[in-house]
Design a protein around this nucleic acid. Structure first.
Length: 596
DNA sequence: GCCGTTTTCGGCCCGACTGTTTTCAGTCG
């Protein structure tokens, strides 16, 4: 994600908070939040978009916010915002990020205790809390004070280590929670919902729903809050509960009886943006939606006792969406772009499935060709056998290129030649292709003598060094590399490492253009910490008519089972079977590989 | 402040939980 987008989103959220503190119209407040959400989730760099005069394309950014952003990018500040912030201590905007403290309480705490410095505000407030002063404040009490102290501690700890998790690890944790829930005899079907069901690459919290008979809900919530090793029960009411698990991951549980489960699935899968858009659409049709079902608009708001029949209940998502006369959008598409419109027209894409995948074109064996980076742990034959077990029709071997230092060009050619001979002689069974993952050097040259290209079927080119070049340099560098013969795949194109390293900055229009012309596939790398190309850019690429290779980049047999994560990224990028080269049958794939 | 296949004006998603209150505000998802 672009840091600039984060900064702008955070600025807009501060404006929203300031408006809330000043008791402005709640619709203005929401408008700033919506714009912030949209900017945070965009694939493109917001400043680049501004330079092109395309800020109007961002949903939620209208005339007013566009003018403010214009001023922001030109001068670094916005007069109107500064006026809005007037009288609000800067520490307010720090404190409101502590869970349990919102803008209003943050403002009250900051002004009452004269907390000025945003950098020390959290620790300053903790001192105040320890002195017992918060409990004396109006509308606060001793319980609020305790809660705030605990929350501050967790916040301080979380500043040192992030609390988000990579999707596969979160999935594992979710499975453990479900196993615990199922130990209770009243728990029926359980589903992992929220961002995990939508396949989001990093997970902030885990959402689980279960079918439980009405009269057993309290008992199951109690059982949930007894999950071994939990850090804290965050809240537990009569309808839902939350716990915090190490390392500070929140798990939300919702329980519903069989006949209302469909509405609960829909609500709890989200995203927030999808649900808001769906509810807005429904209002236009005279219906009000919630996790409990669908009401007529005139019955909006809490129902009186005895009026429960006024809410229609749905046991499946198909029935719920069906009532609104639309198809069920696959969870991966529920991000509030245009999936509702297409679901209404029965025009949703038929997304790629794991079972459509016919091969893996990026795997590293243990064959020693003196590589520039790490070798794999298993032989060509072992990897080929695994591919066959996965019901693939072919496999592509792609060790790293031989390292250039210590080898002359002709030695490298020789190494490559021997590798080809070795594979032809020893690998039996599944049809294979001989590939190679080659470094794109800072200059844009590839780390392989041209003559060595004769000994491969295809090349994957990837950036593995000098990540901090300027956007122009980086674009030129990658473009140069993509023009070499036999380049078929651009490997992990942004080079990002989730929660560790930002992706490289590229002019994607230029890259998409050259890939389109040469029919080069962009890789969707399935490694848990890459998931690269990111889903938003997959969708952009798709709009430009590109195709993709979903690869595991395996360095060991068990990595070959991670294809599902890449598939999930491709689905979030709206890819169908026809958009994925390694969903092609052998003959068509061969044609594509040998096209350049 | 944004937005439009009902609209350029008049709407704007919905509900649960908690604490401090005695009917609701704040926060969260």
């Amino acid at each position: 994600m672009h840091t600039i987008n984060q900064n702008v989103a955070s600025l807009l959220r501060s404006v929203s908070a300031a408006l809330l503190i000043k008791k402005e119209s709640r619709f203005r407040i929401v408008a700033y939040d919506k714009a912030a959400d949209a900017i945070e989730q965009m694939a493109q760099d917001i400043k680049a978009l501004w330079k092109e005069g395309k800020l109007d394309d961002v949903p939620g950014v209208g005339e007013s916010i566009r003018a403010h952003l214009d001023e922001y990018f030109k001068t670094g500040k916005v007069k109107h915002f500064e006026h809005t912030f007037k009288g609000i201590p800067a520490a307010t905007f720090t404190l409101m990020h502590v869970p349990g403290i919102g803008p209003i309480r943050a403002y009250k705490l900051a002004t009452t205790f004269h907390l000025e410095n945003p950098k020390t505000a959290v620790r300053d407030l903790k001192k105040v809390a320890e002195e017992g002063k918060i409990a004396e404040l109006e509308s606060f009490g001793s319980k609020s004070q305790t809660l705030i102290m605990e929350s501050l501690d967790r916040f301080i700890a979380s500043e040192q280590s992030p609390s988000r998790m990579l999707m596969p690890y979160a999935a594992e944790l979710a499975d453990r929670v479900i196993a615990h829930l199922k130990k209770h005899k009243s728990v029926g079907t359980c589903d992992v919902l929220g961002s995990l069901r939508r396949g989001v690459p990093t997970i902030g919290d885990i959402d689980i729903a279960c079918i439980v008979p009405e009269d057993q809900i309290a008992a199951v919530i109690k059982h949930f809050t007894e999950f071994p090793g939990l850090l804290k029960v965050d809240n537990a009411g009569g309808k839902k509960a939350s716990i915090i698990l190490p390392p500070r991951i929140r798990v939300d549980l919702r329980l519903e009886s069989d006949n209302g489960y469909g509405a609960m699935l829909q609500y709890f899968t989200g995203s927030k943006a999808h649900n808001i858009k769906l509810r807005e659409y429904a209002i236009g049709k005279g219906y009000s939606l919630s996790e409990w079902g669908i009401k007529k608009v005139e019955d909006r708001g809490p129902l009186a006792k005895g009026d429960e029949h006024k809410i229609m209940r749905f046991n499946t998502e198909e029935a719920f969406y069906g009532f609104l006369k639309m198809k069920v959008p696959p969870p991966e598409l529920r991000e509030g772009t245009n999936e509702i419109e297409l679901a209404l027209k029965d025009n949703l894409p038929n997304l790629i499935k794991l079972t459509d995948i016919k091969g893996d074109l990026h795997v590293h064996s243990d064959y020693d060709l003196k590589p520039s980076h790490d070798r794999g742990a298993h032989t060509f034959q072992e990897m080929s056998d695994r591919a066959r077990a996965l019901k693939y029709e072919y496999i592509g071997f792609s060790e790293h290129n031989p390292k250039q230092s210590g080898h002359t060009a002709s030695q490298i050619v020789d190494i490559m030649k021997r590798r080809q001979e070795y594979i032809h002689k020893h690998v039996k069974g599944l049809p294979y292709f001989i590939g190679l993952e080659v470094d794109i050097l800072p200059s844009g040259e590839i780390a392989l003598p041209e003559k060595a290209i004769d000994y491969v079927d295809y090349l994957i080119v990837s950036v593995h060094s000098s990540f901090t070049q300027s956007k122009e340099q980086m674009t030129k560098r990658v473009k140069t590399a993509l023009l070499y013969p036999k380049v078929r795949i651009f490997g992990h194109p942004t080079g990002r490492l989730l929660m560790k390293r930002e992706g490289i900055d590229l002019n994607w229009d230029v890259i998409f253009d050259i890939c389109k012309k040469r029919d080069i596939a962009l890789e969707v790398n399935s490694s848990a910490d890459r998931l690269d190309l990111p889903d938003t850019l997959v969708r952009e690429g798709l709009k430009n008519g590109l195709r993709f290779a979903i690869d595991t980049d395996s360095h060991a047999l068990e990595h070959m089972d991670t294809m599902k994560y890449g598939v999930s990224v491709a689905r979030r990028g709206w890819c169908e079977k026809k958009d994925i080269v390694n969903a092609l049958p052998l003959a068509s794939l061969k044609k594509w590989i040998h096209a350049v």
